[in-house]
Nucleic acid binder design. Structure first.
Lengths: 191, 191
DNA sequence: GTCTATAAAGAGATAGAC
DNA sequence: GTCTATCTCTTTATAGAC
């Protein structure tokens, strides 16, 4: 039997992805979790706790993924490829949680919002270091600055959440491969 | 003097981008527009009207942009480049309106939601045709299917809304150029 | 076309029994 | 740890005067 607190978090993530944080009521969360609304407040202090916990969880997974890559792979090009894989597989394996982090940050206030923003920045800068190393090793082009190269990469990777279908013909791993090739080689026909 | 109805729409777009559709109250919209909340309802029937009008406006501009390119440019590669430019310039010239369309569709219900979804699909399919023509003319690679090539392109273009700074050092046109190069050539160093 | 006033529903959250 | 009942505030929207 899954603990109630975990189930609450799971259904909250599902609802936040489907209807947005502001668009989801605590009544809906309670109902989907199979408890009364008041019981919810035995497990959380406020609705915002759920959002914060989900964002934190998402970033913990992404950060530990890229840290593992940094610890185990030293070759710049392979590092980049493995970081892309780790990112895409993590995100697509739990669309509810990561979509919530990517889209619903607005719902957080004060120190928690600042904390999540800081960890997002931290993650972006780790990827930027990987991209930078690849530039220095002549793996990636240097006529576009590292910040842009990294932001475009994240654009390509993150927003697959809007159209990736877990039950489709393309697996997450296959999509990660495809994105890697497109990011590195581009869309032009090889002459 | 700008008409009240237009001002309402403008401030609604600004607020919807900043706080989300569900996170924005009609009180805030009225206040920022300089009228009482009740007066708002002389101009609109419901809050959702604002969201629908903004989504429709966004898609009208994007569709007419790509239609103009199709009408005036026949070369596949130039068509693709011009379509990218038209898209990026349109979106970045009015971040409030286009961000609302891209992010807040969830707030629409019923037939209006279906209508906006249909026009988004229509736009995607027009871009897909351009990409497909480029494949057939050996401009773009054919080892990745047209649907994926188009979705990745839209990923790259659309989500610049989250980090493009209108007052930054990079102009919208320069960013469009950069995205075009990255999409076509990729990130690898040319050997 | 804008106002003051208010209705009606829904939101997040709490009290206190079991 | 869950419940019933309720509080308080905010929400969207309307009525009707000017």
């Amino acid at each position: 039997m899954v603990q109630t607190a975990d189930r609450v978090l799971t259904v909250a993530a599902r609802l936040f992805r489907a209807k947005g944080y502001e668009g989801t009521s605590t009544r809906e969360i309670a109902k989907l979790a199979g408890i009364e609304k008041a019981s919810l407040y035995h497990h959380i202090g406020a609705k915002e706790d759920l959002l914060y916990t989900l964002c934190d969880e998402s970033l913990n997974r992404l950060l530990s993924g890229v840290e593992r890559v940094l610890a185990t792979e030293k070759d710049p090009r392979l590092r980049l490829q493995q970081a892309i894989h780790a990112h895409v597989l993590a995100v697509l394996a739990d669309l509810d949680t990561h979509t919530t982090m990517l889209r619903e940050l607005r719902g957080l206030t004060g120190a928690r919002r600042a904390h999540v923003l800081a960890r997002r920045k931290e993650y972006e800068l780790m990827l930027r270091e990987i991209v930078s190393d690849s530039q220095n090793s002549s793996v990636l082009r240097t006529d576009i600055d590292v910040k842009m190269l990294t932001l475009v990469l994240l654009n390509m990777l993150n927003w697959t959440i809007f159209w990736f279908k877990p039950d489709g013909t393309l697996s997450a791993s296959q999509l990660a491969d495809l994105l890697t090739r497109m990011y590195l080689e581009g869309a032009v026909a090889s002459s």
